[in-house]
């Protein structure tokens, strides 16, 4: 669906390469996570794919065509939800959706249904300026999917949402994937990426050092140990054991049998640990 090869990009003003020869492919029906700290090139890449930045080098193919050759009709087939809810403040929720929806050839999905799904149906006739950040983000989200596009770009779709609404949005993203839509997800929230993405790319300083499935990454870079915490003489102690030899580790069994165990955890690395390990960067 999206095929990027050897893409370079330099901002005119800074003369510094913002993107340095990156490569990745995204298949139809995939949720592709684009992870990295702020300023790494996430937004730049997303803007190039969407077509808001010209003058990239290399090749960016979307739906089999070079991005720079695509006309404005391309926007019929994509949906974008920016991380900042950009809505008409003085108009109601429904007016916002209908006005933007009218620019597309596709008939819109059932708007009331979408509103209902994200819990905004009761507020549909209220002006957006009175909405909370979370409500605006949800409206922003359904606006991007209402014209039933093939490719979706989500930038921090769950930011500012409470856990229940975040869950709803995440479920909706998974449903989109199940209906064969392609999702390009930009985030620095590793938990969201881990839960949703089929594959993730880490981007740091304009380059992509790693692209892989989250579970593969965890297998590859996880520590595979078991950490046991127990109390001995009123002092909390902990000990770690390698996972692969645990079935015949007598020390481990000894502790299990004789000590007052508090917790036992297998130490898989989180995506965040792996990111820090691979890139030497914290996610901010």
């Amino acid at each position: 669906m999206i095929r990027v090869s050897e893409m370079d990009f330099t901002y005119e003003k800074s003369k510094k390469k913002a993107i340095k020869g990156i490569n990745f492919n995204i298949e139809k029906g995939e949720i592709f996570g684009f992870l990295g700290p702020s300023g790494a090139g996430k937004t730049t890449t997303q803007r190039i794919l969407i077509g808001l930045l010209r003058g990239y080098q290399g090749s960016v193919e979307i739906m089999g065509k070079e991005r720079r050759m695509l006309s404005k009709d391309f926007f019929e087939n994509i949906g974008v939800a920016f991380d900042f809810p950009n809505l008409y403040q003085k108009l109601t929720a429904i007016e916002n959706l209908k006005l933007i929806g009218s620019y597309y050839k596709n008939n819109c999905l059932n708007i009331d249904e979408l509103l209902e799904r994200v819990g905004l149906l009761g507020d549909k006739d209220k002006k957006v300026e009175g909405f909370s950040k979370g409500m605006k983000m949800r409206l922003n989200f359904i606006r991007s999917i209402m014209h039933d596009p093939e490719i979706l770009f989500f930038d921090e779709p769950t930011s500012g949402l409470d856990p229940i609404n975040a869950k709803i949005v995440k479920d909706m993203i998974v449903e989109l994937k199940e209906r064969g839509k392609t999702v390009f997800l930009t985030t620095h929230n590793m938990t969201v990426a881990e839960q949703l993405c089929d594959r993730v790319a880490f981007i740091v300083d304009g380059g992509i050092p790693v692209i892989d499935r989250p579970d593969n990454l965890k297998l590859k870079y996880g520590k595979h140990t078991v950490k046991v915490k127990y109390v001995e003489n009123n002092v909390l102690k902990k000990e770690e054991f390698p996972m692969d030899s645990i079935s015949h580790n007598s020390n481990f069994f000894q502790i299990l049998k004789s000590k007052n165990i508090k917790t036992i955890h297998s130490q898989e690395a989180t995506l965040e640990d792996i990111f820090i390990k691979l890139t030497g960067r914290e996610l901010l």
């Binding site: 077509g51 808001l52 404005k72 994509i78 974008v80 950009n86 008409y88 933007i100 620019y103």
Partner: peptide, 14 residues
Amino acid sequence: IQGVLQYIVVTPLR
């Protein structure tokens, strides 16, 4: 400022 313009440019509206 409201960002509406930013969104309009990613719709088919020329």
